[in-house]
Nucleic acid binder design. Structure first.
Lengths: 168, 168
DNA sequence: AGCAGATGCTTCACATGTTAGATAGTCTAG
DNA sequence: CTAGACTATCTAACATGTGAAGCATCTGCT
């Protein structure tokens, strides 16, 4: 544990890794996913594939690709590959709309609905375990805070990163 | 918005997507990274590469690959590729230890330290913007909650999931 | 010494994240 | 009606996430 000042100059002004909000969020989310992944793996589903299936249970007509991207927090390129994969596996259908051929509607097949019926309860059971762990009170406390964080808009803040207050 | 009961049976018992803790964590973290990525991109660094560089500022001797993985929350395979990449770029050195040839020590080069000196302040400035956005009070409130979530151990919880767990 | 098993790290294979650009369909000004 | 702008989605290229397997190397035990 040497103390070379020249090497640690920048480090001194930096927050410790542990207290970094991005790292704390990452760490918490990884703990959540470690809980879900084994169960999803037994159904040959990745976390993202399950997000897509789950989002589609809210409608019978299906969702457009754009809506699906928004609901699942997946970017276009990822979603394109995932949908193609799940269509190949017979779990989803993909049909382009008639009044606007640019858009495509994605929906569950009967097989897809049966997958959801099989995975859904197991997913909820794990979620219940998590809620029990932190307590529903603390859960109700943390969700609004996370929602607030999600609303942080970098554009507003990053317009003058240099001096921190070149407000023009 | 049809209401086919057979299709939405499973959905009824599922939490809404928005209230899902994993999704909330993902959403919050994405907002954070949207703030950092453009700045890191200007220095030709990904978020993960920056995590590695930053972790190495805490020592002059460097860290073993395993320690680095733990500090940065990166898995072995990712870290192997990232270190190889950064060694090629002259930012890191990688030397195997003498008393145990399996282990390798990773350290910043002078060039690496100058990169950290350039990026560190900008990174801190963005973090300050975020802290201002939520307020340091709410930040101090959320960090312990996240830390608690990170401590969730799936193994303990899944030992008694009920009839979903065929533990015999 | 010598061998079975543990350990640290890497490589492989496949899925996703991220950015930039391509593609095709639609809309609007003129 | 039509050229150019706009939109929704996809493809390409590269980096990372993830689980499983491979490879040295080390350690404990006999």
């Amino acid at each position: 544990m040497t103390r070379d000042p020249s090497a640690s100059t920048a480090a001194h002004s930096m927050r410790s890794f542990d207290q970094s909000l991005p790292m704390a969020l990452l760490s918490a989310r990884e703990a959540m996913m470690r809980a879900f992944r084994p169960m999803l793996g037994r159904h040959d589903l990745t976390e993202q594939q399950w997000r897509v299936l789950r989002a589609l249970t809210t409608t019978t007509d299906g969702l457009e690709v754009g809506e699906l991207a928004e609901n699942t927090l997946l970017l276009g390129p990822s979603l394109s590959r995932i949908v193609a994969n799940l269509v190949d596996r017979g779990v989803l259908t993909r049909t382009s709309r008639e009044h606007d051929q640019r858009r495509a509607l994605v929906a569950l097949t009967p097989k897809g609905r049966s997958v959801v019926a099989a995975v859904g309860p197991a997913s909820e059971a794990i979620y219940d375990q998590i809620e029990t762990h932190i307590g529903s009170g603390r859960l109700a406390e943390v969700l609004p805070l996370l929602s607030d964080l999600a609303g942080f808009d970098a554009d507003l803040a990053s317009t003058h990163v240099g001096e921190l207050d070149a407000s023009h």
